[in-house]
Design a protein around this nucleic acid. Structure first.
Lengths: 152, 152
DNA sequence: CGGTATCCGCTTAGATACTG
DNA sequence: CAGTATCTAAGCGGATACCG
């Protein structure tokens, strides 16, 4: 795919002749990246998915209870649900060993492994920008303390 | 930060001596990246944020209505709400021109600009993996059609 | 051990109507 | 033009209890 953001000129042109839509834009909407991005974000944007991926990203298979220890605060239910979603999407492989007591192990699939890099990039960004974001929020909230009208 | 995933040996060691927690793990939980990641994901993981960032990533200031045209399907309300969040977090700058009719322009801040790369990485991953994910879902749903018990 | 089932509250997002 | 206000439905996530 050779999709790239439009240049300034293209953007301006698209704005002026309101009817035309650039390749970039059409790629961002329903048929193209928009749907994929939104669909993917609906899954990896939830509370636990990236944390599970990070836990599995070391490349070793982990059992249910091990995962739970790796992700403090997650409930049994949410761990099950999130793992199920990841398995359904083909990002995580679940292996049930028919023993007593049962043993279930989880690992990233090949596709799941390709998520590690983007996820780490995002995680790094989050870590590096977090202080700045927190500071900005404080400033914003302090400024708006008086009026409900944003621009007053 | 010199945080890196633990090696296999470290992980195994951590599992065995259940009490110890590796640097990587502690960085992933509440005090460290976990909070930042979750907080950030709560914002950028919603339905529209990344689409807005992408629209603004071309580096040109866009007006409210222009943004709305760039992101088909977004409602006035959701555009307002999402932009407000981005502004509060210091990722987007809002400029109100005191004219009649009013003109408001939005652009990425410096920090907002640093989000472009991770966002694009994630977007690319989404686009490239989407077909595979969809296929996996179909397989998963077809296999489970019979029984509610996952492992049966 | 590794789940499932149920209930319930909170947040998100869409539709609609109104405004400086 | 660029919002705000209100209402509502759906989804996400937590707590608890029970099961193979």
């Amino acid at each position: 795919m050779a999709i790239r953001p439009p240049t300034l000129e293209e953007t301006t042109a698209a704005e002026n002749s309101n009817a035309r839509i650039s390749e970039y834009e059409s790629a961002c909407v329903a048929g193209g990246q928009g749907e994929a991005i939104r669909d993917v974000l609906n899954h990896i944007g939830n509370k636990w998915t990236l944390l599970i991926v990070r836990a599995l990203s070391v490349g070793v298979r982990l059992r249910f209870t091990q995962l739970q220890r790796h992700i403090p605060g997650i409930s049994q239910r949410m761990l099950t649900v999130t793992l199920r979603h990841l398995e359904r999407d083909g990002l995580v492989r679940r292996t049930l060993h028919a023993e007593v007591p049962p043993r279930v192990e989880y690992e990233l699939t090949d596709i799941g492994t390709t998520l590690i890099e983007p996820a780490r990039a995002l995680g790094s960004w989050a870590t590096e920008s977090y202080l700045s974001v927190l500071a900005s929020r404080e400033r914003f909230d302090a400024t708006l303390a008086g009026g409900p009208n944003h621009s007053t």
